[in-house]
Design a protein around this nucleic acid. Structure first.
Lengths: 241, 241
DNA sequence: TCCGTCAACTTGTTTATACAACTTTTCTCA
DNA sequence: TGAGAAAAGTTGTATAAACAAGTTGACGGA
């Protein structure tokens, strides 16, 4: 089974919604109808629908049907969704982008770093500071902490390209789960030194903890964005009692 | 079936993880083992595990097992998760809180409001401005737009309590899906007038579009938070190819 | 010793079925 | 006619089973 059936069905329905073949506010065909159309079991259809619901395309209503609630977003400069690297995001938005490594060090986690990163004291890590440019402006400041035993033989050159590509293609490490925390923080002297800040005195800060296929947290990253180039989208379904 | 089995199993396993009976970095018992223990089918166990994975408690690894990746958060002043009202959040964090309505109007959506809220021009709405206090400080400024045909007979008194409780308990309207957009924006004159801003010149802004059980978008809200009282948590699983 | 194969065990996908719970429509009977 | 019951259709929960696909460890042979 090279291609997953529920993924095909998900994509087909998604296209129809985006093309407004299934218009906003209308009902999808019933699960049984879709089951017949796609020649699969109801479970497989339901799995596809579940994914569409999680991504805010539809919402299902017990006893009534599944309703389309999708309306296209006004496109943003920048859009997160799932775990996506800046490079992927920039390519999708067709902007020229560049990364400059301004600090590259190998060090041992002390108490202070441990509190911030939740790495155990004594862990060997690479510490990388990177400035991200899009459209010629310095917009994002990244502070990365990578475990040296997972992200092996990291170099400034790799950090200037994509660390994730290096991990997946060269090291064959899987990136599985990320926990993120979004906050808004005051600018620091380092921010002022490297970023084109205009007169903002705050930044959008995304702190992320990333785990590999072995369940090891191998990365802590703090990504500091100039406010006007930061957007984060999210969907949520209220749990009914 | 009054209580849902997968929910029970989910809760039981979650407790064990939080009590560190299943320690961080260890493997859960296999799905077959859990199936036997809970006397249910494998699918039901898998549904519980899926929920735990979505909430960042575990991650499953094909062929290996399901690993615990939970570590307790340093508790934040404020924590979103799913669709939760400020009142629920405040109660959970045991803070005194208060809401003051500073503007309450009924009006018709014009072109300008339509662009911001994505309500159709001509729609009748309540427009409410509310200031939220926690621990004696004015921290949050809410701009709410409610459709009058869904949130019927809204009053300033209700808005000062909880609009969601009014909707669920009195109007029996279900709140199902919310789409949110998080950004960071400059403070406005209105923010300065009502909020205790310190010297921040930016705010964390959450814009949300909320749908009821009939799939009608009945609310647009812009919630403007002072940076130091805003945190947003999120989990994401990378889709493997 | 080292390497490959195989068996055992894990999670992932798919099908099929049954019944529960909720909504809408239809039908029946007063 | 009208109200209520029944039927039909919808999504939600749960079970069972089979096979695919990835990882681990043990066994055996060169």
């Amino acid at each position: 089974m090279p291609v997953k059936k529920y993924n095909q069905i998900y994509s087909r329905i998604k296209e129809r919604i985006e093309d407004e073949e299934y218009g906003c506010q209308t009902m999808l065909p019933s699960e049984n109808t879709l089951t017949e159309e796609f020649g699969c079991s109801r479970n497989t259809v339901r799995r596809a629908l579940r994914q569409l619901a999680e991504e805010g395309y539809v919402q299902s209503m017990h006893g009534k049907g599944v309703q389309v609630i999708y309306q296209p977003y006004e496109q943003a400069d920048f859009m997160f969704s799932g775990i996506e690297s800046l490079k992927e995001a920039a390519e999708r938005n067709q902007k020229e982008y560049e990364t400059k490594v301004v600090c590259f060090a190998q060090l041992t986690v002390d108490e202070k770093i441990a509190r911030r990163t939740s790495f155990a004291p004594g862990t060997q890590i690479y510490y990388v500071q990177r400035v991200r440019y899009m459209g010629g402006q310095a917009l994002i400041m990244d502070h990365n902490y990578f475990r040296t035993d997972v992200v092996r033989d990291l170099t400034p050159g790799i950090a200037e390209q994509s660390v994730y590509e290096y991990m997946e293609n060269v090291l064959h490490e899987d990136i599985v789960t990320t926990k993120r925390r979004m906050t808004v923080e005051r600018v620091t002297q380092i921010d002022e030194k490297y970023l084109d800040l205009k007169d903002f005195n705050c930044l959008a800060v995304v702190s992320s903890f990333t785990y590999n296929g072995d369940g090891v947290m191998f990365e802590y990253t703090q990504s500091r964005h100039r406010p006007d180039c930061f957007v984060f989208y999210d969907h949520a379904q209220r749990i009914r009692k």
